[in-house]
């Protein structure tokens, strides 16, 4: 069992994903903005973060938080991070792990929305293993 944090402004998506992950025995918290998520992570370090890329207030808020985690925070540097994006559409098929590593964001994994829960679960398991 792991402590997972989902950061996404879409409440319905958060609730559905949290429900599935809880069924797999994980402890899940959700946050709707990167600022709140950062505050929560400072209080308690998650085992893995699922982070949306675009937020209503800022198109690159997700990227900014990821960059902060990887480049500016010693504490959060090694937390496994999966970014969920609806815009990364260069991948040949919509429902697969893009498998790309952004050179600016080392060790960040991308999954393209809409995600298949089976894909998400296996990705999480491989990162937590």
């Amino acid at each position: 069992m792991a402590y997972l944090l989902i950061v996404d402004d879409d409440d319905d998506f958060c609730a559905a994903t949290a429900m599935v992950l809880r069924k797999f025995g994980h402890e899940v918290q959700t946050e709707s903005s990167p600022e709140k998520a950062l505050a929560r992570m400072e209080n308690r370090l998650p085992d893995l973060v699922l982070l949306d890329v675009m937020f209503p207030e800022d198109d690159s808020a997700g990227h900014n938080l990821a960059r902060h985690m990887r480049c500016s925070s010693e504490k959060l540097k090694n937390v496994p991070l999966i970014m969920l994006t609806a815009l990364k559409s260069d991948s040949p098929l919509g429902f697969i792990d893009c498998g790309m590593n952004d050179p600016d964001l080392p060790a960040v994994h991308f999954l393209e929305k809409p995600i298949e829960f089976n894909t998400l679960i296996s990705k999480i398991n491989s990162l937590l293993a």
Partner: peptide, 26 residues
């Protein structure tokens, strides 16, 4: 067009996630 299609894709992600909950028996 990129922005519009992205805006369309996000709600579909939520619909898809919730429909999966039903189909997969969660």
């Amino acid at each position: 067009m990129l922005t519009t299609t992205h805006e369309l894709k996000s709600p579909f992600a939520a619909i898809h996630a919730n429909a999966q909950l039903l189909v997969d028996g969660y």
